[in-house]
Design a protein around this nucleic acid. Sequence first.
DNA 1: AAATTGTTTTTTATGGATTAAGGTCAAAAA
DNA 2: TTTTTGACCTTAATCCATAAAAAACAATTT
Lengths: 309, 309
Amino acid sequence: MKTDTVFKRAFNDAIDLVANLRDGDPLPSENTLSRELGVSRTTVRKILSTLDHRGIVNGSGRHRIVRSARGAMQRFPEAETISMATQVEERFMEWMLRDNARPGTAINELELARQFGVATTGIREFLNRFQHFGLIERRPNAGWVFKGFTASFALELFEIREMFELRSARAFGELPVSSPLWERIEALHSEHLLLLSEIEVRYHDFSELDSRFHRLINSAAPNRFINDFYDIITLIFHYHYQWNKQDERHRNEVAIREHLTYIEALLGRNPSMIELACRAHLGSAKETLIRSTAGHDPEASRPGGEATS
Amino acid sequence: MKTDTVFKRAFNDAIDLVANLRDGDPLPSENTLSRELGVSRTTVRKILSTLDHRGIVNGSGRHRIVRSARGAMQRFPEAETISMATQVEERFMEWMLRDNARPGTAINELELARQFGVATTGIREFLNRFQHFGLIERRPNAGWVFKGFTASFALELFEIREMFELRSARAFGELPVSSPLWERIEALHSEHLLLLSEIEVRYHDFSELDSRFHRLINSAAPNRFINDFYDIITLIFHYHYQWNKQDERHRNEVAIREHLTYIEALLGRNPSMIELACRAHLGSAKETLIRSTAGHDPEASRPGGEATS
DNA sequence: AAATTGTTTTTTATGGATTAAGGTCAAAAA
DNA sequence: TTTTTGACCTTAATCCATAAAAAACAATTT
């Protein structure tokens, strides 16, 4: 059966929305709610009916108002708002990056399904989509193999990333002055400065800023394959840094400074400066990732294979 | 239920194998057959048992021989040897490239499933894998949209292809003389010459040669993401040219000559020659693809948008 | 007329069952 | 001892069913 995570998430959002209304206020129309909550009217109606049952709103049809004696406004637990597909993704990434999944490990659909508490269909669907991230391989009629989150994965990933980013950065530098992207990158520049000034407390926010920055650069000359590739990077970094917190503050501070140099190079429209700043930034991002694969990668842990700093 | 296409294909292969034996000859061992037919021993045993029932082999266990009065040796029809997944792929590509599927068309899992005579699961699985080919887009909870086999698809595809191929070609040119790839490319050179001399009758064989050639180049500096991307190209070209035969002989002849120049540049280890030949070849391949998208792409068919030759 | 709600129809997300194919282990033969 | 076969166990490919969510259509209300 389909899960009702869409409803539950939207219901929680609706609770927040109602919380901002005063007693007796009329509710927005179903269409408006549909738009604001990002779900279909069908789901909105289910939410309204639930709000009614729970004594949060009164009336029906066009005459729905926030009840004066509102009920408890109990939200659904976060866990119930996560779709099966997302859960599978999270659990799989955890298994892969956090547990020490060794290169060559066979991936068993049935076992994962049991372990994750979902049907095999869900696992298959995930694996099929995940296949092109370069970390697993299908053996027809015989399951999947985990290729390993290894140094060579990081190297190959960054080789492509560098090619793509250099190309986009160059294109960015050649944008006409009239392009709206210039404003947007200046705004990002300020955001970087702001974050840097509050780095001690807000260093977690860098990850999201990083993603926005690189996507902005890519948008200078859109290419669906590059965007698609950037999804891989985003996913890997998202999960990877979620579980790899050592030195996070320092790492992010360095990256912010690199971004600033990079942004300034872009604003200066100087091709060779752009290339330099871009390479420098990607180079250190690569270093970080490679270092972190060491724990996973038997090859990389030979003596002398890893720098200490 | 799982289809038995693996068995049927392997059975047909086994028939060919037995056809080469004389009456009374002993059959190879199960393990040998398993290796030669590319299936598990379980499937081999099913084949042997079927051969037995059909009166093609005699005896059991270790004492199986080809029967002197062999039965009819009837093969399974080709169609029954194609797995569901492959069928879905073929039918979908046909729908997309041959029928005039318009950009923006909604893709309906249920309808495709009915149309192709498979369960929706099969469609979903295909769409999930196919997603990263850049031709369809998922709308969560609301199906898929066909983005169109358009000129911009071709342009974006070739932008990446060029980046990747130039990089691999450069790497190829820098390979040490001791590399075994030099022999292989010389062999390919001869194959090209041979095909060119028989072009009138064998021009269909170019497609496969083309794929092998470009994969060889990529293998100079392997990168999983590049290989993965090349799968897209292979698939697109495979199906595209399967249904777009106009001018095929001439097109292929031109491409072979371009390949020859390209190969000679590689053999000459001259970076600028390599780059030149590579660009020239990809440029004309791009032209061909773009021209052929015109029929699909409403944008591209404006007057003046298309050259006549 | 345009927006809103009520009703019905489609379609996707997910679980579950079934059979083909793969894999394992030990007995038998070479 | 290594192959080969026999018997059995697991797993992947595939179909099907059902509830949630979306979409389409009709009936109201402003």
